[in-house]
Structure formats: structure tokens, C-alpha cells
């Protein structure tokens, strides 16, 4: 992987670097920003914020609900045993199991969506990363740039350090 990137101590500088890269004609999808915290209050922190996760949670919940319904009522009918004079398929108690499985389905579906869409667990091999990020620096860079030399000035902002990866 080849890459060129800058490390910035301040999110304002990182934002500037992102804006410069855009001005230099780099597509938004090609700009990588890596940080040790989410920057909700900066524009670069909002890129790629759209997610289907809430809908997946709803789908997971519906799957859980259906599972709960089938698990309770089908097994109750498969071997009908009378207890306490209650109906064989007893709705009141079954609703509790259905509720729990609904919530479980929603939770598991959200987490699966998170793992898939955030590519976790994944290998960092061959991907842009710098351990200095965990010291608080914000990495802004471009992987496999067509013209690294042209991008370096865009990243060279006062207070930032420009690095490149060649391998």
C-alpha cells in the first residue's frame, strides 16, 4: 500500500486538511480520517454517517418477535400439557418471552450491522494507520494516491506533519 497522510493535533487543522484535499480534487470516499475519538462537532466527523442500522434493529426485533411467537406457541401446542387451568397457548405469559426475544433480536441485529459496516473484526494489514493516533493526533490521508506529490502541499498545514507510506 502506498499512502500519504498528515497528522494533526487539532481538529480544526484536520478539517482544513480534508477541505484542502477536496479542493485538490480528491473524492470524498478516498479521504481517510482516523482519530482517537469521534468528532461529532466537525464536518469531517459526519462523513459517511448515514447507516441502515436503525432499520436493521427493527428487522432484528421483528425476527426476534416472530421467533418468540413461534417458540412459545408452537412448543405449547406440540405437547399440550395443562397447567393451572390456563389455556394451552397462554398469551399473557408468552408476551413476556416474545418481548425479551424482540429486544434481543434488535440488539443483536444492531451489533451485527455495526461489525459488518465498520469492518470489525478486521485486519489492519495493508491499511493506513499510525499508532500516534492513539496519542490524540488526527490522521488525514489518502490511500494509494495517483499523484502523491500533488497532495502533500494540501496536507502540509501549519501544525501538521506530513508522512508517506511506501511499500
Amino acid at each position: 500500500m502506498k499512502a500519504v497522510y498528515g497528522l494533526y493535533a487539532e481538529p480544526e487543522l484536520a478539517q482544513q486538511a480534508v477541505d484542502n484535499l477536496r479542493a485538490a480534487g480528491v473524492a470524498d470516499a478516498d479521504i481517510t480520517v482516523i482519530s482517537s475519538e469521534p468528532f461529532e462537532h466537525f464536518e469531517f466527523g459526519h462523513r459517511d454517517a448515514k447507516t441502515v442500522m436503525p432499520w436493521m434493529a427493527v428487522v432484528g426485533g421483528l425476527v426476534g418477535m416472530t421467533t418468540g411467537y413461534l417458540l412459545t406457541s408452537v412448543t405449547q401446542m406440540a405437547w399440550p400439557l395443562k397447567t393451572s387451568g390456563m389455556p394451552i397457548v397462554s398469551w399473557w405469559p408468552n408476551l413476556i418471552v416474545i418481548f425479551e426475544l424482540t429486544m434481543l433480536g434488535a440488539i443483536v441485529a444492531s451489533v451485527i450491522t455495526l461489525l459488518v459496516s465498520a469492518k470489525l473484526p478486521g485486519s489492519r494489514a495493508g491499511k493506513l494507520y499510525d499508532p500516534e493516533v492513539s496519542d490524540g493526533y488526527i490522521l488525514v490521508g489518502v490511500e494509494n494516491p495517483s499523484d502523491p506529490a500533488r497532495l502533500e502541499p494540501a496536507l502540509a498545514i501549519n501544525g501538521g506533519r506530513v508522512k508517506s507510506v511506501e511499500s
Binding site: 481517510t32 480520517v33 482516523i34 482519530s35 482517537s36 475519538e37 469521534p38 468528532f39 461529532e40 469531517f44 466527523g45 459526519h46 462523513r47 459517511d48 454517517a49 447507516t51 442500522m53 436503525p54 434493529a57 429486544m103 434488535a106 440488539i107 444492531s110 451489533v111 450491522t113 455495526l114 461489525l115 459496516s117 465498520a118 469492518k119 470489525l120 473484526p121 478486521g122 485486519s123 489492519r124 491499511k127 493506513l128 494507520y129 493516533v133
Partner: peptide
């Protein structure tokens, strides 16, 4: 899990935590 801290990863993590927080209370 090979976490890097890309913008996408942070956004997904925050979304997941929001949904979980809503789901875990009931």
C-alpha cells in the same frame, strides 16, 4: 478487532451505542 478509528467506524459505533441505549432500558 483491528480497530483503526476511521470516521465510518466511529459513526457506526455511536449509532450502535444509541440504539443499544434505547433498547437496554426497557
Amino acid at each position: 478487532f483491528g480497530w483503526r478509528g476511521t470516521t465510518t467506524q466511529w459513526n457506526r459505533l455511536e449509532s450502535a451505542m444509541q440504539i443499544m441505549a434505547v433498547a437496554i432500558i426497557p
